[in-house]
Design a protein around this nucleic acid. Sequence first.
RNA 1: GCUCCCAUCGUCUAGCGGCCUAGGACACCGCCCUUUCACGGCGGCAGCGCGGGUUCGAAUCCCGCUGGGAGUGCCA
Length: 482
Amino acid sequence: MSGPRVRFAPSPTGYFHVGSARSALFNWFVARQSSDGVFLLRIEDTDADRNREEWVDGIVAAMDWLGLHADEGPFRQSDNAPAHHEAIGQLFAGGFLYYCDCTGDQVQARKGDNKTPGYDGFCRDRGLERSETTGVRFKTPVGGGTTVHDLIRGDVEFSHSVIDDFIIAKSSGAVLFALANVVDDRNDAISHVIRGEEHLPNTPKQILLWQALNEVTGVATPTPVYAHLPLLVNEQRKKLSKRKDPVATEQYRDEGYLPEAFVNYLALLGWSPRGEEEKVPVTQLIEQFRLEDVSHSPAFFDVKKLQHLNGEYIRALSVEQFIARSLPWVHPTDGEWRPSQLTLPWTPEQFDMARFEAMAPLVQERIGVMSEIPAMIDFLFLPEPPMDEDAFAKSIAKDEKSRVILRALADELLTVTWDRDQLHATVQAVGERHEWNLRKTQAPVRCALTGRLVGPPLFESMELLGRDETIRRVRQAAERAS
RNA sequence: GCUCCCAUCGUCUAGCGGCCUAGGACACCGCCCUUUCACGGCGGCAGCGCGGGUUCGAAUCCCGCUGGGAGUGCCA
């Protein structure tokens, strides 16, 4: 008994959808559960009008990022065209197909308000020959029905009376998904078809095709086990839309979600690990995952929860790891991956690795995504603090006392021992001299130094900035407000 | 319209007839910690869609209703 053979079969028509990522992940889980399981990647590129080569690269890159490496492939469905056409020949010989030259308008006109869905079978017995206007249709059996055995949903029955004679090849000769997918799954000896719920309605068609192929080829391959995953939906409970919803996996990568966190979160959508802990390493995810346990109802992709989990993963990193993995967002290297559209406020020359390393542990416990890092540390590298005018107005310009304190502090800073504890004591003392507590005093100082009212701990920041620059910024802020 | 799927806190889920006065997590709200913001800790808010059965007993099984979703392409 050999292990499961699963496949992920995306079409390269856009960014790598998070729903696709989850389908890929669940397939990968199943493959990795057996030492001899096989995870196969097949690019379903039969729709020449919509496919673009760059999207293929995108899929591969995104899967690579998530650590979902294919054991076989990536294959191109288009490379299998000869097999698809051979299948059509065999199915024709077996009497399963016919040519049809009806246009959509004609079918519509004939059907009127007939409620039966799909094609009306007009050409079924016309015995048309192949021409430039004929598509190829499958003769769906007239009576009976087909049962889909679904690991997640149980048996789902479809009456043949509601399955029309569907098209399997266009008049151009191009073979369509319905057939190509089945031919390839047979040839690839796929044992489990794990995919989105939207495919459930066309599964009986594919089973019919599979059985027909078994008959005409003389090679009886067992139909695969099916598992249809619940949809991923948005707040409106609608299927995640490429146009309206943030569904591009690439975008999450750019924003600084860690792949291990992303994988962990994806696994939580429609499934849950044992116990009460949700942050679970991928090895345990693989171990515990069971298709039978996947939930039946749609799941909302909750970015807030993703971000929380990501924060947990970030904090679980050692400082060294955190620093190394921050680099693409703070000091990207030529030739290495970097977030697209990343614009750093500082130049590579201005970046100071030592300062970043000193600040890193403080940053690490404050962020949910890596892309938050630059705004927390930019003041360390820029010649002038990036001044937030609202913050300046509120903390410095508004109250004369804050300027008085700033000037007094600048003088004190001239002689104080330059370490965080002394700085702490000094700022506090100067504030208290003017009847301001530390909470209140730190605001104008922080603003003067960092340009903002929120950020990493103040005294460590001062320490790193150095005496001269700190004093200069404090004085400058006080003058500017006068 | 037709076919199919689905239904536990706002969200993701645990629950697979008694362990449930329904557990966890996110979000939200308090409190503590605290130099801001976070992190962390503690606490709180909040749910089995409705109606019938079955059963000694139902969130769990069955039926109906209602609600939501998907499919209904010479797309995948």
